[in-house]
Structures are given as structure tokens and as C-alpha cells.
Design a protein around this nucleic acid. Structure first.
Length: 156
DNA sequence: GCCAACGTTGGC
DNA sequence: GCCAACGTTGGC
């Protein structure tokens, strides 16, 4: 069964435009170092799932478009590379600790769905990303929320 | 730039 | 196992 997720990214680090410019419009989603998010990457997120691509720490804050999971959870090998910024000395090939998935761009919204728009809508205003103190970089999204975001983006 | 919320660390 | 200190996230 297809499920839906929201992935946060700071556009200064990696934007949806970066994804569009990537080879095959695909990227691995490495560097998640939070156990709750790790569990979703490792256990729950499957090939074919939908991803809302959210731009955080920027202006305007917005869902910039969507992507599709093309590879489900596998070990984040960047944690094993001593010179890499995502290195974790506690990780090993036997116990990788951290996981990542691969995603592929579906579309960049012509009209990004801003946080202000999300806040105005009865369904999207309840999304995890809208809750105060919500810091998870990987979040579940309900089918109703997924649908409402597409309506706000002008996509039937 | 500020600061609240949250996760992690480490002393006890 | 508790909890204070600390670092990070991320909206405003």
C-alpha cells in the first residue's frame, strides 16, 4: 500500500531544484541522525511511496513539490566514512545504525504551497509539520493531507 | 538574531 | 534512573 511522507530540507543545503539538477532527478536521502526518523526510513518507507518536499529555514517556508521513493531503507554508508560530515564512529558494516532511502523528483509545484497556506486550510493546518516544536525531518502524511496539499498547489 | 522545543550526554 | 547542561532545529 502506498503511503505518504514529508521530507524536510534546508534549500541552502539541498533544494528541490538541486534534486531536479541531480543525475536522473534522483538522490539518496542520507544524513538523518534521529532515531524516530531512522525507524521510519528503515522500517516503513517503501518504494512507490509519495514524498512532500518541504523547504525549511528559508523564506518562504513551503512545500516545493513532490518526489517518489525509488529505493526503500538501506544502510547510510556515509556514516562509515571518517572524513564525511555524516560520519558516526559508532556505526559499522555489521551495525550500520543509520539508514537512508532514494527518491526521485515527481514535480516542482508551479505555485509552492507555503506554510501560510497550510495554516489556513482545515486539513493541512493539522499536519505534523505545523505542530509547534515539530523538529522531525521525516514525517508521516495522511492521504487526506496529501490530497489537500495537491489541491492547494492547483493540481486536481 | 532570538528563543522555545527537543534530543542527547554524562555525572551522580 | 534521574536530571541538569548542552547542542541543534527551525519558526518567527
Amino acid at each position: 500500500m502506498q503511503r505518504f511522507w514529508l521530507f524536510k530540507s534546508e534549500p541552502d543545503t539541498f533544494s528541490i531544484q538541486s534534486l531536479a539538477a541531480s543525475k536522473g532527478k534522483k538522490t539518496s536521502w542520507e544524513g538523518v541522525r534521529n532515531y524516530q526518523a531512522r525507524n521510519m526510513l528503515r522500517d516503513d518507507i517503501q518504494r512507490g511511496d509519495g514524498v512532500l518536499f518541504y523547504h525549511s529555514n528559508t523564506d518562504p517556508l513551503a512545500i516545493a513539490g513532490t518526489a517518489e521513493v525509488v529505493k526503500s531503507g538501506y544502510p547510510d554508508h556515509f556514516a562509515l566514512q571518517p572524513d564525511h560530515k555524516y560520519f558516526d564512529e559508532a556505526a559499522s558494516p555489521e551495525k550500520p545504525i543509520w539508514y537512508m532511502v532514494d527518491i526521485k523528483l515527481v514535480r516542482i509545484f508551479k505555485q509552492p504551497v507555503t506554510r501560510a497556506m497550510l495554516a489556513e486550510h482545515p486539513v493541512t493546518s493539522k499536519m505534523v509539520v505545523m505542530q509547534k516544536g515539530s523538529r522531525l525531518s521525516i514525517q508521516p502524511v495522511t492521504p487526506a493531507e496529501w490530497h489537500a496539499v495537491h489541491e492547494l498547489a492547483g493540481i486536481a
